[in-house]
Design a protein around this nucleic acid. Sequence first.
RNA 1: GGUGCUAUCGUCUAGUGGCCUAGGACAACGGCCUCUCACGCCGUAAACCCCGGUUCGAGUCCGGGUAGCACUACCA
Length: 530
Amino acid sequence: MERQVKVRFAPSPTGALHIGGVRTALYNYLFARQHKGVMLLRIEDTDSTRFVPGAEEYILEALDWLGIDIDEGLRMAKGGREIESVGEHGPYRQSERREIYHKYVQQLLDSNHAYYAFDTPEELEAKRQQTPIFQYDARTRMEMQNSLTLGMDEALARIARGDKYVVRFRIEPNEDVHVYDLIRGEVVINSSILDDKVLYKSADDLPTYHLANIVDDHLMEITHVIRGEEWLPSAPLHVLLYRAFGWQDTMPQFAHLPLLLKPDGNGKLSKRDGDRLGFPVFPLEFHNQKDGSVSSGYRESGYFPEAVINFLALLGWHNTGDQEIYSMQELIEQFSLDRVSKSGAKFDYEKGKWFNHQYLVQKPNAELAELFLPILKEKQIAVTYPMETIAAIVGLVKDRVNFVPELWEQCNFFFEAPASYDEKSLQKRWKEDSPRHMTELIALLEGVSEADWHHNYATTDQNGNAATRWHLDDIVMPWIAEKEYGVGIVMNAFRICLVGAARGPHIWDITHILGKEETLRRVRKALEVL
RNA sequence: GGUGCUAUCGUCUAGUGGCCUAGGACAACGGCCUCUCACGCCGUAAACCCCGGUUCGAGUCCGGGUAGCACUACCA
């Protein structure tokens, strides 16, 4: 019988959610949605020593921001900052599932698939010192302190006495274990290279990842395990566990995703690379309460969630053809595991910026204006323009930025008159005759009515494309021509008066927004100063 | 060291035996447009890891080598 597709994202609350983890969550989500399946989120907090406060909230908030919706398990409640748990297979935090694991550990003990071991971490460390290639397995387990060498009575007596112990999986040597991976095909590993993995530790009364992961995936009816490539070497162990439990018939299918690599050099992308190269490695800014560190996030850097999704989706997956801009809906429709690359992808932050640019340019000006408002507030600008004007301003400069905060550097002169004038621009564009030109220009512009000042009309450019022409252009250009001043000379000087530098949109777009009064005020001011 | 995975422009990738003189995108460079800076448009440079084999024909299949990465914890 065909089971409903069900995938899980199972992060560990040990800090901010790494961008590679975000991609794993995304691929799981895309796969689930495409197959009309269920996306489950479970928290794997089986290492009590690595728990970081706030990490769980962070993970759920990040997924919520990105639009990766959770159907079952833990998730951010709609519109709030509260975590909610939905589903019949809970609890969804492994630290709350102790009794469940007890039962299954016991089952493995009873069926002789596992045994108690009393070797302390120090003893194991000492053993590794003596024998550098030491592995706790069929060859060495009879030299160690465990219920196999001590006898079950002695083992139970030690436990009763309060000795710390672990439960280890007893792996039969010399068997080729076959794992079928949806991305890589069949992978075969000999069981002799596997060690007798610790499944449970009495120290904190918690299982390890391997046991918890298998038990939970089984109980939660997971059909596909889509996770990072770092798990591939332990996949055979997981297969063996499914078999030991007698669950091989409902064992999920595996897909191991390629890793996200450093932009330069080789190796896994790490938090350090972000710090070193100056880009975020996390979706949201994170304040680590445990070590006091602060990590920058994509959201705070001005990224749109759609852009992050699009960028990440293409880092490891690509459809046939040349399409690069994908909405979440398109990704859901087109995603497929067999088009996921097998090799790791270097993290190309520059391309990430380009994706954000694409989404920024597509956004309606009114929406961008709303997003820009907080930046203005931050700059302590008293906004005197109506929203439509701010939208117009943003529209004039948006195609030259990648991020909303960058808008400010491109349009600040609309909000504040130049306090100083750029030296380089001055040198190149402010000529000896400029003061005279500007004085004459003031006289000319003073004679323009308010209506004419703001008047424009549709026309065509030399290529026959639709264009807008400002009436002011019709007044100033003939004047420049008549006086033979040179368009570049006059207009650049004019621009410096208004902007303070040789940059910005077309000058009549600027004068329109500034208005006649402010425009003339700025030119007069420049004449005083320069 | 052992085991596994991987291998096309600097980067992300298309390519599933002839359509490949290897396509697209980012970045770089040049030009056009132009009152400036951008955008945009046009263009340039840039890759099949190596060696064998299979085949009429290999980037594509096979073998070997090399390199890179991952794993090798009472972490996930």
